[in-house]
């Protein structure tokens, strides 16, 4: 009995906490890596085509995104498989575009409003009909700067 007590008392109980910050950092990194920075959830399938003559979209705050593509499989029961327009995070019709543009516009300082660009993220398989309707509506709303989103194709 006495021998047992003696042994416990001798070992120092302090555990080194020097590595605790590192563990926390590791957790931080884990979440940094796993997090996807995307503000809108895509409800349509968009696989943009390839192109070479690309311009970068400079200021994210001056860009609004319009997605066109087939609804994801889980929405096809409700919305069918015909290509649809998605504004923000919901399915929309072409008639909703002016309000969508206006909502984005009020968030932008007045001096920069001319620089607002609409980025059209359109699936390559979509036919031009719906794209044309969207383009016409953008023109009617006075939104002339448009960027056809595309992936970079290496030219040889």
């Amino acid at each position: 009995m006495s021998k047992f007590n003696k042994k416990r008392g001798k070992s120092s109980p302090a555990i080194s906490t020097a590595s605790l910050p590192d563990i926390i950092f590791m957790l931080l990194f884990f979440f940094m890596v796993v997090t996807v920075l995307r503000d809108t959830e895509l409800k349509v399938q968009v696989n943009t085509p390839f192109a070479t003559e690309l311009t970068k979209l400079e200021k994210k705050s001056l860009v609004n995104f319009l997605y066109i593509g087939k609804p994801n499989p889980e929405f096809q029961d409700l919305y069918g498989s015909k290509p649809r327009l998605q504004l923000g995070d919901k399915f929309s019709s072409v008639a909703d575009i002016p309000l969508f543009l206006e909502k984005h516009k009020v968030k932008v300082p007045e001096a920069q409003r001319d620089a607002i660009t609409s980025s059209l993220k359109v699936d390559g398989k979509v036919t031009m009909g719906i794209v044309q309707d969207v383009k016409t509506e953008l023109r009617k709303s006075g939104q002339q700067k448009v960027n056809y989103s595309a992936k970079r194709k290496e030219s040889f």
Binding site: T48, A51, T55, K56, R139, Q143, Q144, A150
Partner: peptide, 17 residues
């Protein structure tokens, strides 16, 4: 190793309506 996805595309100016 991280590549931040950049948005690129063909910039066009639509004619006024």
């Amino acid at each position: 190793t991280t590549t931040i996805e950049e948005d690129e595309g063909i910039l066009v100016r639509l004619p006024p309506w």
